[in-house]
Structures are given as structure tokens and as C-alpha cells.
């Protein structure tokens, strides 16, 4: 209701030149631009950054790619919280609405089914390739997970029967697989070395690969379920959601 009123107000105000709020905003933006411009002009030509520090620690990190080393070894807790944010997003969407039942009358053309049959295996293959490549080149859990999620979206768009028949408990397990593995590894590291996410010597490479794989599965499922747009119909835990 409020948003409708707001849009109507905006459409009425469109022909007025500027109101005071817009002027204030314009002023703030101009101030910000001037500030950024001054900073940019006084910027030193070459900043040392943290590249040298990362490069000197690279050997201990267990991976060859500096980006993955920073994400999962030197600043592992940051990535842990990011994965948690994605899980929270799904929980939020599921608590808001149920997944809509598609009322599509036209049937799916065979061309689309052909595309799904051809592309889905390639998508899964490329997702695995990107996760594996994350240890030495560009790639990693987020990129691989996004491709995996794209495969899920492709299957959801094509409205296959078996994709609706997947038990919800399995989806829930898949969703928490990545975060749980991450937290489990962190606790294991805490137990062994006495420091959160400080991997024991020699095992860093394997642990990072384990975390990346499980997180990629969870991220992919998260994105596909966000596309689904709500709690699946046959959920066992029936609350009072409309």
C-alpha cells in the first residue's frame, strides 16, 4: 500500500523541476564527487599494497592462486561469513512465501528440451572444472557454484517433473553442507592448532579443496532455490505461512 502511494506520488511529481529533497541529494552527490576527485588527484602513484606480503606467504597457503590463498587461508573467516549470508538469504525467502505453482498452459517445445539435455552436463562439468581450477588460476567456489546454480535454473525453467519430486530434506541437507563443512573445518583447526581456520601443516591444500567443493554445491543450490522463489510445496515442516 505504501509503495503504491509512493509511486503515485512520484509520477505526480515528475513534471515538477526539483523538490528540496532532490536538491539536498544533488548537493551531497556533488560534494562526494569533489571529495573523490581531490583524493584521486592526491593519490600516490604506486602504493605498496599487500601483494608482497601475500607472495611471501604463498608457499604456506597450500594453493598456487593468490586470490584463493587470501580468500580461504589468510582471511578464511571472511569467506565463512559470506557463505552464511547466502544461507540466510534462502532462509529469508523460504519464510516469506511458498514456491508458486506454475500455471503454464503451453507445453515445452522439444527444442528447449534438447538444449537442456545438451547444456546441463556441460554446465556441471564446467562448474567442477572451475572449482578445481580455483587452486592455481582464476576460479573457485563462488564461480563454480554460480555455474552449478545455472544448471539448476535451467532445469527449473524447463519444469521437469523429477526436479519438483526431489525431497525437501535432501535440499535442506545440500544447503547446509557447505557452511557445516566450513564450520567443522574451522573447529577442527581450532582443536588441532588452537587458532580458528589456521590449517595444520601440510593439510591446507586438501582442506581448502574440501571446503571449496562443498561450498560450491551449497552456493549452487542456494541460487537455484532463490530462483524457485519460495518454500517448496511438499515441505514437511508446515508453519503458518500463507
Amino acid at each position: 500500500m505504501r509503495t503504491e502511494k509512493k509511486t503515485r506520488g512520484q509520477t505526480q511529481n515528475r513534471h515538477r523541476r526539483f523538490d528540496s529533497f532532490q536538491l539536498l541529494f544533488l548537493f551531497l552527490i556533488i560534494c562526494l564527487t569533489i571529495l573523490l576527485g581531490t583524493i584521486l588527484c592526491n593519490f600516490p602513484e604506486s602504493t605498496p599494497g599487500l601483494a608482497d606480503a601475500v607472495a611471501s606467504q604463498q608457499k604456506q597457503s597450500g594453493v598456487e592462486s593468490p586470490v584463493t590463498a587470501v580468500l580461504l587461508n589468510f582471511r578464511g573467516y571472511d569467506t565463512l561469513l559470506e557463505v552464511m549470508v547466502l544461507l540466510l538469504a534462502v532462509i529469508g525467502v523460504w519464510s516469506l512465501a511458498r514456491a508458486p505453482v506454475s500455471k503454464q498452459t503451453t507445453e515445452i517445445s522439444p527444442v528447449q528440451m534438447g538444449v537442456v539435455r545438451l547444456l546441463t552436463p556441460v554446465l556441471c562439468l564446467v562448474a567442477a572444472y572451475l572449482v578445481w581450477q580455483g587452486s592455481h588460476l582464476a576460479g573457485g567456489a563462488f564461480q563454480g557454484g554460480a555455474i552449478f546454480g545455472a544448471a539448476g535454473v535451467l532445469l527449473l525453467v524447463s519444469e521437469l517433473d523429477w526436479i519438483r519430486a526431489i525431497p525437501v530434506s535432501l535440499l535442506r541437507i545440500g544447503l547446509v553442507l557447505g557452511p557445516l563443512t566450513f564450520v567443522g573445518t574451522a573447529l577442527y583447526c581450532l582443536f588441532i592448532t588452537g587458532d580458528l581456520l589456521a590449517y595444520p601443516e601440510g593439510t591446507a591444500g586438501w582442506l581448502i579443496l574440501l571446503i571449496e567443493t562443498s561450498c560450491a554445491i551449497s552456493i549452487g543450490l542456494t541460487l537455484a532455490l532463490l530462483f524457485g522463489g519460495g518454500r517448496p510445496e511438499d515441505d514437511v515442516f508446515n508453519g503458518d505461512i500463507p
Binding site: L119, L123, V126, Q133, A138, V153, L154, V157
Partner: peptide, 24 residues
């Protein structure tokens, strides 16, 4: 050579938006 991987991702996801547009 990493840029070829990005192009691969582009090519893989090219159909997705159009299929969604047609169906949804």
C-alpha cells in the same frame, strides 16, 4: 588464457536468460 574461461562462462549462460524470458 584465463579470459577464454570467462568467454566459456558467457557462452554457457547465453541461453539461460532467453529461455527464462520465453517461459516466464
Amino acid at each position: 588464457p584465463v579470459l577464454i574461461d570467462i568467454a566459456l562462462v558467457f557462452a554457457l549462460l547465453a541461453a539461460l536468460a532467453t529461455l527464462t524470458f520465453i517461459r516466464r
